[in-house]
Design a protein around this nucleic acid. Sequence first.
RNA 1: UCCUGAGUAGCUCAAUGGCAGAGCAUUCGGCUGUUAACCGAAGGGUUGUAGGUUCGAGUCCUACCUCAGGAGCCA
Length: 474
Amino acid sequence: MAIENGITPNSSPTSVSSPTRITTIAEIGEHVDERITLRGWLYNLRASGKLLFPIFRDGSGTIQGVVPKAEVPERVFETLKSLTLESSLTVTGRVRADSRAPSGYELDVEDLTVIQRIPEETPYPIQLKEAGVDFLMEHRHLWIRTPRQSAILRVRATIMRAAAEFFDNRGYVRTDPPILTPNACEGTSELFEMEYFDEGKAYLTQSGQLYVEATAMALGRVYSFGPTFRAEKSKTRRHLTEFWMIEPEVTYMDLDGLMNLAECFLTHIVRRALELHAADLKIIGKDVTKLEAVIAGSAPNGCEDGREQRSGFPRLSYDQAHAMLIEAHQRGLLENAHRYGDDFGSPDETYLSSQFAKPVMVHRYPASVKAFYMQPDPLDPSKALCVDVLAPEGYGEIIGGSQRIDDFDLLRRRIEEHHLPLEAFEWYLDLRRYGSVPHSGFGMGIERCVAWICGLEHIRETIPFARTLHRIYP
RNA sequence: UCCUGAGUAGCUCAAUGGCAGAGCAUUCGGCUGUUAACCGAAGGGUUGUAGGUUCGAGUCCUACCUCAGGAGCCA
């Protein structure tokens, strides 16, 4: 770009002397003692008389520059000295290893070109000092430039890729369900509603599960990966109205196979996050020993076919979990005693997960508190063949799954018992009319997984632009 | 939907019912190893909105608005 925006014209970095290599801060360690060019922004600037310490960022990281007045052209020194924070620029200099620098490297600045200078009258609104949640969320489009938020979004990207590649590597076919749906999947949650031409109401999907059951019957092993929407007026650090979910569905898989699958799946994601993001997790402030404990004992390429239990996530039946909660209440660790037959509340889940270093799998809940399509346990038909996976450190349920009802008559009866419109489920019942087979699947909320792996206080930081009860801007 | 809490300078926060304050940011000056740099100076206010009590309200009362934390429900 040849934009100088009112400042003294600079020569372009490439015209100064020898051609330089354009690189990124993340890769700067490969260019020690070389002359390189970075393209980014001025993150911070400290001045000490005739010595400037600009900190540059380029999206991949930050690095401190050193600019002694006596050793650079006056134009470079004066331009940088009065440059406003977050102004965009390219900078050329020599990379030097320096033990005083947090990252281990510094840049001896030789030249720079300002791309856009932010005027003093309208300074960059986000300071390096702490700010309130409301202010930061109102400026989310700028907040994501900070090192910590950028690091979180990089880890999120890896988690999403690791989740998809886990299934891709095992022969699953990605089959994404529709986002616009004609009716409520499970008849429970509040849905976002809209007019759909002359066809009446349509709704934003709350889960693609029923549709992936259909694609599984076509393709065997499938998964979906996309956004889902809940219009529930939940107002907690664990809830978004729009979030991403990955949902595998597998024919001829029972609950035990599903639990193995979920365990291998989470192990893979945690392993990839640790492999690729040690630096980012450090910026975020996550204690990685807690993640290492999750995958301890697992084999890097284990869990083939979901038949082997490798890293040993603890498994509790609903009854066992209930007993633990009763005991915790008696010892004064829980305020309210869990009532047998009820679902677990948030404090209950937090307590259960806090008892283990690994995610805990709670299975076979009472059918009455679970969705209509879950297969009853043949050993106790009052229980459903389902599993919730609770993340460690109180991050709550990150996976919910079950074996699905494959018997036509039972499924139809359940639809009627839940007072769901039978005609809307005819296509779903067709899956049991025509070559029904046992099958299972689960769904994992990406954002809760990111919040857990990054150790975040609030789920709103796990997605570039969070949609919550009282926020839809920016 | 319910419970609790908070709205004062661009940002983070002070101010017993009695003159509207500080730090950061911005501007100017100083400083050659700073790590949210530091030191000095300047500018910057309809105290969320509307009423009420009072000689006097940022402070007390009422309603509303906005936001946050939690519950329920969920991933």
